[in-house]
């Protein structure tokens, strides 16, 4: 295990290669999902979801259509669920992250995640942000990197005088921004966010949205949202998922994906049009 992480991983190796910006290397994560199962239940069927580099990709769709399932399969978070089974390939930096040779731990260090519920650790604000630096054996100036991450997460001014008090003593919105700072401190390539604003009030939501525009300068972001206005405000590309209730099973799939304005103004699929008009949810 240790060995696996000290030597240059295939993922690291790919980072060095810089080529002509073809359509191919504009894609940070290329998810070719054949099917995702929880035990016998097929939660998601055939869907191709490319996440473009340096952009924000929004996932929208009715509840239970598999948005979270797809998002979590992009950094192998779903491996925590014993019944989870993935068929298909998810390419990240030229590697299939579901290749048995690849350690999910390494994948999650390169592809960070922010969850629906703020979940800071029961430690100080400083230690929360420095956590990822510690496990990634960061050699530089930890204080400086912590400050940078907190600034990037638009939280620095609110906490700079109490860095050593508990992260759990912050408000919900502050906790969520702390979790964002914790996720970006070790410099992941991609940041996955699963409804990061659903536990927040409108003001905190706006703050986090504004923050996302800053984040995309340095990171590729994929975000699940229930809120179509939010998708329109933040996402460059939007993916619309729906659920197929046909043969007695509820199976989610990607309906269509495209530039956000195009998808909202002129959707190609009738289903998308209906959903955007609010005709079903």
């Amino acid at each position: 295990m240790k060995n696996n992480m000290t030597k240059t991983t295939p993922l690291d190796a790919m980072e060095q290669t810089t080529g002509v910006p073809t359509e191919e290397n504009q894609i940070a994560i290329d998810a070719n999902i054949e099917a995702i199962y929880y035990g016998k239940f097929r939660a998601v069927r055939q869907s191709h979801v490319p996440i473009r580099k340096g952009e924000i990709t929004g996932f929208i769709g009715p509840s239970g259509c598999g948005k979270s399932t797809v998002l979590r399969s992009l950094n192998r978070m779903n491996d925590l669920i014993p019944t989870f089974k993935m068929k298909g390939h998810v390419h990240f930096m030229g590697q299939d992250i579901y290749d048995p040779a690849i350690d999910p731990v390494v994948v999650r260090r390169h592809i960070g995640m922010v969850f629906q519920q703020p979940n800071p650790f029961a430690m100080s604000i400083y230690d929360n942000v420095a956590f990822g630096l510690k496990i990634n054996r960061f050699k530089g100036d930890v204080n400086q990197r912590v400050e940078e991450a907190l600034r990037e997460a638009a939280l620095w001014d609110e906490v700079k005088d109490k860095l050593h008090s508990s992260g759990l003593a912050l408000s919900g919105g502050q906790q969520q921004r702390l979790c964002i700072a914790r996720a970006i401190a070790p410099n992941p390539t991609v940041l996955l966010m699963d409804e990061p604003c659903s536990a927040l009030d409108p003001i905190a939501t706006r703050k986090v949205e504004k923050l996302m525009h800053e984040l995309k300068k340095h990171y590729t972001v994929a975000i699940v949202t229930h809120n179509m206005q939010q998708a329109q405000r933040v996402a460059d590309t939007t993916a619309f998922f729906s659920v197929d209730i046909s043969d007695g099973e509820r199976c989610g799939y990607l309906v269509e994906m495209g530039k956000t304005e195009e998808l909202f103004e002129d959707p190609k699929q009738e289903l998308t049009r209906k959903y955007i008009r609010g005709e079903f949810s």
């Binding site: 390494v106 999650r108 960070g112 979940n119 650790f121």
Partner: peptide, 12 residues
Amino acid sequence: KVKEAAYGMGTT
């Protein structure tokens, strides 16, 4: 969610 947070950061 705490467990998720830990593994989500890429801990062993």
